[in-house]
Every structure is written in C-alpha cells, then in structure tokens.
Design a protein around this nucleic acid. Structure first.
Lengths: 244, 244
DNA sequence: ATAAAGTGTTACGTAACGTGAGGGTCAATA
DNA sequence: TATTGACCCTCACGTTACGTAACACTTTAT
C-alpha cells in the first residue's frame, strides 16, 4: 500500500513541499525511493507523520520532534497521553478566550468595566506553562541522557541547580523553612527566567502535574527518587501559605 | 496611564522585541515617544493590541491584520463575533484531535482498527475551512474594495466567476437544475481548489454560515443582493439531495 | 503516442520574530 | 551627587518552516 507524495499530502492536509522539507531534514524519510527519484510512503511512514503532526500542533520545533521520535526510549503511549492533557488545556484556554471576547463585547458597548489584565486573559502566551515545562524536561532528555546541550545555556544550568538543591532536601518535611526557601527560589526562577507569570494557583497546579504525569515524574526523579512527590507537596504548601 | 514597553509586554505575554517589531511595521505605533526614544503605550494602544492578538490567534498574517484594523469600515463588534465563532470551531477541532488520540491509543494497543483518514482527523489543515473562507472574503475586502489583489490569482478569479454565475441565478428557485449545476460547480471548486475536503454536511454548514454571519452575508451580497440567502438554500438542497 | 498531471531538484524569498552588540536613560541608593 | 542596576534604544544578522518559481523528467490517461 505505498502512497505517492501527493496522496499523502492530501490525506493529511499538508503541502507536497512540506513533505519534501521533512525528507530534506531527515524528519520523515519515505520508505522507498524509485530510480526516478519518486518518493513512496508506507503505512509506517504515515504513522510517524501522525506523531509529527501531534507534536507540531503543540508547537514543538521540527528539530525537537526529530530528536524525540528518534529517541529509542520514546514511548508512543505516554506521548499520546501527554498530548491529550495538553490539548485539554489548550481547549480551556480557548474557553478563556471566548469568555474574554464576550466580556469585551459588553465592554465595547460600555456595559461593564474591564481591567487590563482581563482584556488579555487567555491570550497570554501562545502556549501554556505546562507545555513549556514539558518541552524542557522532555526535550532535555531526548537530546542527551546527560542533558549535555541543556547545560550549555544558563537557564538550564540554573534550573538544574535548583533541582539538585531540592533533591538534597527531599527527605526533610516539605513544610520546613529550608524546603520552602528552596521552593520559593523555584517559584522566583519560573517567574523571572521563563518569561511567564505563574500565579500561586498555577504554581500549585504545576506541582500536581509533576506527580500526575509520569513523564514529568520520571524526568524529575532523575535528580533523586521521590523528588517529584516532594516538590509537589512543597509547592502546594507554598501556594496555600502565601495567599493573601 | 502611559505604560513602558516592558510593562506592556508582561501584561499581555509577548516579548519586547515583538512590540518593537509591531512598531517597525506600523502595526502598533505607541501613542507617545519621548525625546530619548522611549515608547509609551496608551490605553487605546492596549485595546488595539488586544485586537491584534485576537487575529493572531486565528493565524492571520500581520500584514492582513494591519490592513483590517486600518480599514475605516472595520467594525469591532462584528469582528468579535466572528472571532467567537471561529474559536468555537477551533475548540471543536481540538475535541476531534482528542478523540483521534483516544482512538489511536486503542489502535496502538491493537484493540481496534483505524483507517488512514481517521488517523488524521482533526489534524487536517491547521485552520478550518470557514476560517479560510473568512480570510478570503474579509481579506479581499480589506485590501481593496474592488478585490484587486485577489483577482490577481487564478483561484480568486475562478471563485469570482462562480459567484457571478450564481448571482445571475439568484432569482430562480434554488432547486432548479441550473442552480444545482452551478452549486455543484461551487462544491467541486471548493474540494479541488482549496485543498480541503468538504463533506456534504460541511458544505451545508458553510452555506448556513453565509446567512448566519453578517460578515459573510455582506461580502457575498456584493455580487448581488440576496445571493447569500440563495446560496444557502441551494447548498442545503444540494447536500440533502446528494446523500446516499 | 501524446498530452496532462505529477514529481524531482535547485535555489532564492518570506514571515515573525530571536539574539546579541554597543550604547544611552532613569529611578533609587550609598 | 555619584553610581549602579534595571530598562530602553537602534542596528543588523540569524532562524524556522516552509512558499514559490523555474526547468526537466516520469507516469498515467486517452
């Protein structure tokens, strides 16, 4: 059941040029190439393409997608589950935007007032914070088991520092002053270095994702077994205790 | 209440560079610039920025956004309503994707079978057909009242041809053979020239949107008063009568 | 067998910023 | 008042993911 390039393009709704491009960069090499140079795609190729589009939908750059897919430890099921989760969040953001639009409609009419923050609710950052985190952790792992390329940048380095510091504390109570200081550093870091603002609620949610999603858990626990759980608890405590 | 560039950037979740860029291309010029060259943004600027982000979310290119916003006939309320509609559809697509992921999960486990089409349901084209249509009609109008730039490409020309043909028929019954022939040409055109596949159901939905959304109605009726209504009826009839 | 439709490879173009480099500006301290 | 650190500015080149010809070859349909 080999398919020619245009058939594939039409089936999945992308251009022929795009498939050429994916071949060029080695992201999707057709299973067979005839003597005339014609590309023929197999069933397997289609499945890979599906994966590629899943990742693309979540704005992963092609380079990363390539690395992730070629990682022998890549687990399709896990990937699918994470995607599901991220899509659900994307949907929530759309709901937010719709709400913002509705509010704006009233605002334009002069019926209500809107704060500046409200005017941009849901439109803030095109991808959500979890996604950002996922990219870092997952990407980092995919590139190199020892995080080589990740360490090359200052942000990644500092991030690892904090993880390590927290790992050292993971057997103390999460409410301890030391743990809370380290966690507040983490909170600070996220808010200053990632360019996104995390509300305390979001921060708490992020912590919960650390244990709810195996991908996160696995990656975080590389710094020390049980770190994800510890961070989750410490983050929850931090969030609950710093509300005003 | 003038805001400095970084404040704005943080408020809306974009980079300073982005605001620089928007200023460069004349998309968003800050209300005030000090002697030192500092940009100060006003409340009004923020409102424009909100509009820009609305459009960006729907993947309108900046150039088009600029034209749309600077069009004196631009109606913010109408724009908001169309955005709402498009976002709702985007949400539906996300639901589709989630469903596809769920199905794929089962498929990977070997529990069920999946056709190739199914594997890409929801991932097909990054923007939906309505959006595509909206872009064409709206964009065309924004660029030039006489559709100048739109006529320059073959697709647009053919599209106008069909519209005109239909406009000539708009006072005959929509079920007439002539009308149905013209409509089937329209259906053919959409399926072959736009790169998207329209099911009969989708085709019918599109027709209904022609009358439900004033933007569409207004633009279509430029070819002749009442054309939108006529097309809607003819498309509905066509869809209902060609099912098997 | 001949045209129409599809496919190939260069190769330059583009959109929307990212990312420094190098150098002013401003508000708060010491 | 001098200084410092956080912001701000303007170039200007880099990047990602293709779009868009241009031109030649293959396959398929009639």
């Amino acid at each position: 059941m080999k398919m020619k390039i245009k058939q594939v393009a039409e089936l999945v709704g992308i251009s022929v040029r795009t498939l050429h491009h994916y071949d060029e960069i080695g992201l999707l090499t057709p299973e067979e190439t005839t003597d005339a140079g014609y590309r023929y795609y197999s069933e397997q190729n289609l499945e890979t393409l599906q994966q590629i589009l899943f990742f693309k939908e979540l704005d992963f750059p092609l380079k990363e997608i390539k690395e992730i897919l070629s990682d022998p430890s890549f687990d399709r099921q896990q990937a699918l589950q994470l995607h599901r989760k991220l899509l659900l969040e994307k949907r929530e953001r759309i709901d937010q935007m719709i709400a913002t639009i509705d509010k704006t409609t009233q605002y334009v009419k002069g019926e209500i007032h809107m704060s500046n923050e409200e005017k941009f609710k849901g439109f803030n950052f095109s991808h959500n914070p979890y996604e950002e985190e996922a990219r870092k952790l997952w990407g980092a792992k995919a590139v190199d088991q020892s995080n080589a390329s990740f360490k090359n940048n200052a942000v990644g380095e500092k991030m690892n520092d904090i993880y390590r510091k927290l790992a050292d504390l993971r057997n103390t109570p999460p409410e301890s002053t030391e743990a809370q200081t380290a966690i507040s550093e983490w909170y600070e870091f996220l808010n200053t270095q990632t360019g996104h603002h995390y509300s305390l609620e979001a921060f708490k949610g992020l912590g919960q994702m650390y244990v709810a999603d195996e991908r996160f858990t696995t990656n975080i626990d590389q710094f020390g077994a049980g770190l994800a759980q510890f961070m989750c608890e410490a983050m929850t405590f931090f969030a609950d205790n710093n509300e005003q």
